[in-house]
Design a protein around this nucleic acid. Sequence first.
DNA 1: AAAACAGGCAACCAAATGGTTCCATATCAG
DNA 2: CTGATATGGAACCATTTGGTTGCCTGTTTT
Lengths: 107, 107
Amino acid sequence: MDEDTVFRALADGSRRRLLDRLHARNGQTLGELCEGLEMTRQAVTKHLGILEEANLVSTRRQGREKLHYINPVPINEIADRWISKFERRALDALSDLKKSLEGSKDE
Amino acid sequence: MDEDTVFRALADGSRRRLLDRLHARNGQTLGELCEGLEMTRQAVTKHLGILEEANLVSTRRQGREKLHYINPVPINEIADRWISKFERRALDALSDLKKSLEGSKDE
DNA sequence: AAAACAGGCAACCAAATGGTTCCATATCAG
DNA sequence: CTGATATGGAACCATTTGGTTGCCTGTTTT
């Protein structure tokens, strides 16, 4: 929901890597997400908490395990609402470049 | 260039608002960008420095003024290289939802 | 040349951030 | 029940971050 929370959550490389992992295989437990990382379990817990608060990850308790699922909706909201307006400008810039190249061809 | 620098730069609301301002009108001076903000000029300078380091803003000196221009390329790189893979998942989720709705209609 | 204007630099500060360690709780296996 | 396993909570710490203030440099304007 809150744009700032999402951007903040995405600002950290470890959290982005966690999202990458969940993207590769969804529904992993905390323990699985910790494997191979140079961090304590508690650090990962905190990161997942921040991702959960930003609604980028949702969780489900199953017995003593906690399964983590990626939620792409907030990312899409950002992409749609915020990034798209800069993309339009990028496309404009590209078309300007194209025109200038075409112009130099003629001159 | 560096993904992390860009994400970090985008993590702050004041900086995103500065990008918004430049998106609305490109090529503003530092003084113009400060107008109406509840921040000192030096704070804005710092933010613009971070945006510049992330290659989200480029500058041009003109006399005693410094003009700031938005550069959408890094944002597009993020959108293309990183966000798109989550978007695909979002579309998958939507199509799953659609299927499940269609299923429940039949049953 | 002097004053006014636009911006840069550096020291400093409080709060947030990313991480740790230690301990507690809940659940599963034997 | 007991022990191992999976996660949660809280205190604590160093560094980064976002902001300030004070002063300096360069460029116009008069």
